[in-house]
Amino acid sequence: MIDDRFETGQITSRIGISATASLFDNNNDLITLIKDDDQSKPLNCILIDEAQFLTKEQVFDLSDVVDKLHIPVLAFGIRTDFQGELFEGSKALLAWSDKLIELKTVCYCGSKATMVIRPNAQGIPVKEGAQVEIGGNDRYLSVCRKHFKEAVRD
């Protein structure tokens, strides 16, 4: 699944800054892709957005990029889905990363937001469905654990 809300092959910030991006999917061997790119033009750093969607094997490949190719990797993503479950990539990153830096997000109550809820068109939190649905601030709401638990209770 590719997020093409802006443009395929581009990474775009919420404020409109964009840059060319290399696309890959769950079937790609990242160590091979990165090694090939590095041989054609030396890479200084690898940036991965939406890292929660990586496979366990791809996270392992990225650790080889750091350990064997000596190229730093910065991966950005969220830990859990709208049901409070870890994504495969997040779980692997939590286990294999050398350093974790949490970017702070704030719940509507002012507390630290650590979870996300996915409201439907009527604003009611969705409790079942596909783990992945493309969208940003328009589809997901960052909340604290307390408000997440309140939202998902029957």
Score class of each variant (00 low, 15 high):
Asp154Tyr: 12
Asp49Gln: 00
His70Leu: 09
Leu74His: 09
Ser40Met: 13
Arg118Gly: 10
Asp36Gln: 11
Leu62Gly: 03
Ile124Pro: 09
Ser111Phe: 02
Ala75Cys: 05
Thr114Val: 05
Gly110Asp: 04
Ile117Lys: 05
Arg153Met: 14
Ala151Glu: 10
Phe24Glu: 05
Ile117Gly: 10
Gly129Cys: 08
Cys144Tyr: 04
Val116Thr: 13
Asp61Val: 03
Ile117His: 06
Ser22Arg: 08
Pro42Lys: 11
Gln122Trp: 04
Asp61Ser: 04
Leu23Gln: 11
Asp4Gly: 11
Gly84Tyr: 02
Leu93Glu: 07
Ala19Ile: 13
Gly77His: 03
Gly89His: 05
Asn27Lys: 14
Val59Met: 01
Val116Asp: 03
Leu86Pro: 01
Leu93Arg: 05
Thr105Ile: 03
Val152Asn: 14
Arg79Tyr: 09
Lys127Arg: 15
Asn26Pro: 04
Pro42Phe: 02
Asp3Pro: 02
Ile46Arg: 00
Arg14Thr: 13
Leu69Cys: 00
Gln131Met: 12
Val106Ser: 03
Val132Gln: 08
Lys146Leu: 13
Trp96Met: 15
Ile78Thr: 07
Thr12Gly: 08
Leu86Asp: 08
Gln83Cys: 11
Ala75Val: 02
Val143Asp: 06
Asp37Met: 07
Glu88Pro: 08
Lys91Ile: 07
Lys35Leu: 07
Val65Asn: 01
Arg118Met: 11
Lys41Ala: 12
Ile34Met: 01
Gly77Trp: 00
Phe82Val: 08
Ser13Trp: 02
Glu128Met: 10
Ser40Ile: 10
Met115Tyr: 11
Thr8Asp: 07
Ala51Gln: 03
Gly110Ser: 07
Lys112Pro: 01
Thr32Val: 14
Thr32His: 05
Asn28Ile: 12
Ile15Pro: 03
Gln131Leu: 08
Leu54Asn: 06
Leu43Gln: 00
Val143Ile: 10
Arg145Trp: 09
Asp98Leu: 09
Arg5Thr: 07
Val65Arg: 01
Met1Glu: 13
Gly9Cys: 02
Ile31Asp: 01
Gln10Asp: 04
Gly123Ile: 02
Leu94Glu: 15
Pro119Asp: 11
Arg5His: 07
Leu74Tyr: 09
Gly89Arg: 04
Ile17Gln: 14
Glu7Leu: 14
Arg14Asn: 11
Lys146Thr: 15
Asn28Thr: 15
Ala130Ile: 09
Asp49Phe: 05
Val73Glu: 02
Asn27Thr: 15
Ser13His: 03
Leu103Ser: 06
Asp49Cys: 01
Phe6Asn: 08
Thr32Pro: 01
Gln10Phe: 10
Leu30Gln: 01
Asp49Pro: 02
Asn27Ile: 04
Gly129Leu: 07
Asp38Cys: 01
